[in-house]
Computed example of a mutant assay.
Amino acid sequence: MNIAITTTRNPDESLINKAYGISKELDIPYVKRGNYSIKKISEMNKIECFLFVEKDKIVLKGEDNAFFWHPNTSEIKMKAIKEGLNQPMVEAMDLKSGDRVLDCTLGLATDAIVFASIVGENGMVVGTEVNKYIACITKNGLKYYEDVDAQTKIFMDMIDVINSSYEDYILSMPDDSFDVVYFDPMFKIPNKKSVSINALRPFAHQEGLKKETLMEALRVCKNRVVIKERVGSGEFERLGIQKCYGNSKFGSIAYGVIEK
């Protein structure tokens, strides 16, 4: 995919410098915005997608999609946990204060923020994201997004974003590096109502989990591997997962667990 970086109209010097820095980091061209529309600069430069550096965020825009970072449902989930409401993801992860978590499919880091809130400042949350553009947008969002409370910002700052495939990262890790390893692969049965996920889908890694990867994940974890999937997708059966948490209704989200 042909991608370049630009800014909003009439950018100040700091915005231009930020765009230049990201262009070097991602090894993509910087295009001066001028007073042109998105469609016009795309046609002029023959670019399919642009990373737009705005004052408070970075937006990846294609012809029919726009993707930017926001905390999504993380704050809602943390509030539910605080109120003692049943959360299948929390039950499946079985995290404790001070635990180390590897989120292999970071995306927007929605679940990673929740993990950070449970393991606390003595714990550790590492997230791998294979797509360098998504990794850049998420890392920037976690660092600079301000429309959250102070406690949530602490949890966001805890997350270490690694631009790598989870296969390569797991292979590089020694035994028992993490307490829990988590996978949330792109669903084969998409949720058409989820605007943010549907915008991310064209840029996301969509290859299914391999059994060999799960075996490596078991090697680097101390306690368990957790996989998020939709009931009825056939993935739990394909991977030989028998222990699940969540609703058993077809199409519902469930969390498969493999104990160490």
Rank of each mutant, 00 (worst) to 15 (best):
T128M: 05
N65I: 12
A92T: 09
A135Y: 05
D27R: 13
L26P: 05
E91H: 13
T8Q: 09
E13T: 09
N198M: 14
V126F: 01
D12K: 13
S117G: 08
L209H: 01
A109K: 06
K79S: 14
S252L: 11
I154A: 02
T213A: 12
D94S: 15
H70R: 12
K96D: 12
I154N: 06
S117E: 09
L108D: 01
A4Y: 02
L142N: 04
L51D: 04
V126C: 00
I3E: 06
E75P: 09
A112Q: 01
K193N: 14
K96Q: 15
T105N: 08
R238G: 10
I3M: 08
P174K: 12
N198F: 06
P88M: 14
E237A: 10
E167Q: 15
I38R: 09
K82F: 13
I170M: 15
K82N: 14
P202Q: 03
E13K: 14
I197Y: 08
T8L: 10
M173V: 12
L209P: 00
I241P: 00
R230T: 01
P185V: 08
G123C: 06
N17L: 14
E121H: 10
K55F: 11
G240Q: 10
E207W: 01
T73V: 12
Y144P: 02
L171H: 13
G246M: 00
N131I: 04
C104Q: 01
I5L: 10
L239Q: 03
K188N: 11
G208E: 11
D94M: 13
T152K: 03
E129V: 08
I28S: 07
I5Q: 01
L95H: 02
V53Q: 04
E43W: 03
D175L: 08
K188S: 14
E54F: 11
E91I: 15
L85G: 04
D147V: 07
M124E: 10
I5N: 03
K46R: 15
K210E: 13
V257A: 00
I154L: 08
G98Q: 04
F236R: 00
E91M: 15
M124N: 06
D147H: 11
N223I: 05
F52I: 15
Y36K: 15
I159C: 03
S177G: 13
F187D: 04
Y245C: 02
V101P: 01
E25I: 06
